[in-house]
């Protein structure tokens, strides 16, 4: 957005007006809420992990899989009953960053678009957010693994 001339007085006036009316975000308060809720969700995840280690045949290494699946199941219940959105209002990133946030985005999109039919509505819209996560996740993992493997093969690492 390269500007060759500085903003005119009218534009400057508008920018100042915009700043005055822009929603002020209480950054510190939001961070505290995000920390508490996010930490709490992870603590529940830890309890679920220990549950799977004690009562099933999972080791510390492999218990992550059923833990994530269970948390997404829980987020399905919370999303279906409309509770997750309230948590999201309060906690911001505290509910969006854990896997439950990912589950919530997929599941709420599926529920919302159900009226448009299963194939085009649900199927076509479920991956709005998840698609981005998958795209960048897979591609970055690919680059990372490729670079590291090549460096190992050439004897640098």
């Amino acid at each position: 957005m390269g500007r060759k001339t500085s903003p005119s007085p009218v534009e400057k006036g508008y920018q100042e007006l915009q700043k005055k009316h822009e929603l002020k975000r209480p950054v510190f308060k939001n961070c505290i809420r995000a920390f508490l809720v996010g930490g709490f969700i992870c603590t529940i995840g830890q309890a679920i992990t220990y549950f799977y280690i004690y009562y099933f045949d999972f080791t510390e290494q492999t218990a992550g899989n059923p833990t994530v699946a269970t948390m997404i199941f829980l987020s399905m219940l919370l999303t279906g009953f409309g509770v997750y959105d309230h948590i999201g209002q309060f906690a911001g990133a505290g509910s969006a960053v854990p896997v439950t946030g990912f589950g919530n985005s997929v599941i709420s999109a599926a529920i919302e678009h159900r009226t448009e039919g299963m194939v085009l509505g649900v199927g076509g819209n479920m991956f709005k957010l998840a698609g981005t996560v998958l795209l960048f996740g897979v591609f970055s993992a690919f680059i990372v693994a490729l670079v590291r493997t090549l460096l190992t093969m050439w004897g640098v690492l």
Partner: peptide, 30 residues
């Protein structure tokens, strides 16, 4: 688990509030 999970969420929250990124951007960066 509480502390580290909370801290990662705080990093996400800073991306929301300070860097003014959307949830999609934040999750992708994470």
């Amino acid at each position: 688990a509480f502390v580290v999970g909370g801290l990662i969420c705080v990093i996400g929250q800073l991306m929301f509030d300070v860097a003014k990124l959307t949830p999609g951007h934040t999750m992708s960066i994470l």
